[in-house]
């Protein structure tokens, strides 16, 4: 376990060094995330120019939700997307071999290898939006303050598990880099509370594709709308999702044969 943490630190440091070499890119990427966040806040404001509540969520709660959305999405782009992109590329080119030749978990080596440090800015902006939203909510209890980070971390792990599961299909279908694009589109659904969606989509977003849960639940927790029982279910579900996804990945790996070279 500590070995894996040390490895993570090594990966992160290498990435940071590399990104800082290209300062302009680094800055531009931060500006991009700022524009993206600002336009999304704009979209919420446009909706709220016609109403004061949306399915029981007022503007403050909606902003908290949007902030959570960017926290989760920023986490995805910072810690997950880079590795998964490389992973799919390696499957396509048949160059995944090296990770399989090492005496360490292939899943770890493949899925947590690369980072995009500049995307931490998106998480920071998400936190800012959450803070702005909170300033419109009267009072936050201790339980909410503790539950929020737990729910958020569950959200991160859920997104990770989803990506692991999705990317497993690459072992069979080879070219599924667009699953990534699909993932981002579904991710988009997280910007509104899951309960605005019609039944079939809501079910999808809270089970098969847990993006809705990953974003909505933390926002519910801090807005004081979730009981401890719900939080308990979230934790259990997250652990289960993680284990199942890892299993699935290992099954996929077994059928990976690599391209001829």
């Amino acid at each position: 376990m500590t070995r894996y943490l040390r490895l993570l630190r090594l990966f992160f440091r290498a990435e940071l060094q590399y990104e800082l070499e290209y300062r302009l890119n680094f800055v531009l990427e931060i500006v991009e995330t700022a524009v993206v966040t600002a336009t999304s806040v704009g979209a919420v404001l446009i909706l709220f120019s016609y109403t004061t509540v949306l399915n029981g969520w007022d503007l403050g709660a909606m902003l908290v939700l949007l902030g959570c959305f960017y926290l989760v999405q920023g986490f995805g782009e910072f810690a997950l997307q880079p590795s998964f992109e490389k992973f799919l590329e390696n499957v396509r080119l048949g160059t995944l071999d090296f990770a399989l030749l090492k005496p360490a978990s292939p899943q770890f080596q493949v899925t947590l290898r690369y980072f995009r440090v500049a995307q931490l800015a998106q998480m920071a902006l998400g936190a800012v939006v959450v803070a702005v939203g909170l300033s419109r909510i009267p009072a936050i209890g201790l339980a909410e303050a503790i539950g929020f980070p737990i729910a958020l971390i569950c959200g991160f792990v859920l997104i990770y598990a989803l990506l692991v599961a999705l990317s497993t299909f690459a072992f069979w279908f080879v070219r599924v880099d667009n699953l990534m694009a699909l993932y981002w589109s579904f991710m988009d659904a997280g910007r509104f509370p899951v309960d605005v969606y019609p039944g079939w989509l809501r079910v999808t977003l809270s089970s098969a594709v847990p993006i809705g849960v990953a974003v909505t639940v933390p926002a519910q927790v801090i807005a004081g709308r979730l009981d401890p029982l719900g939080l308990g279910f979230l934790i259990l579900g997250t652990i289960a999702a993680f284990i199942l996804a890892s299993r699935f990945w290992r099954i996929g790996l077994r059928s990976y044969t690599g391209a001829s070279a």
């Binding site: 070995r3 490895l7 090594l10 990966f11 440091r13 290498a14 090492k102 005496p103 080596q109």
Partner: peptide, 19 residues
């Protein structure tokens, strides 16, 4: 080897992986 970083860094990673 990872394309964008010096090999020395990759060696360190291998050190951890192989303990």
């Amino acid at each position: 080897l990872v394309w964008d970083i010096p090999a020395a860094d990759s060696f360190r990673v291998l050190q951890e992986i192989y303990r």
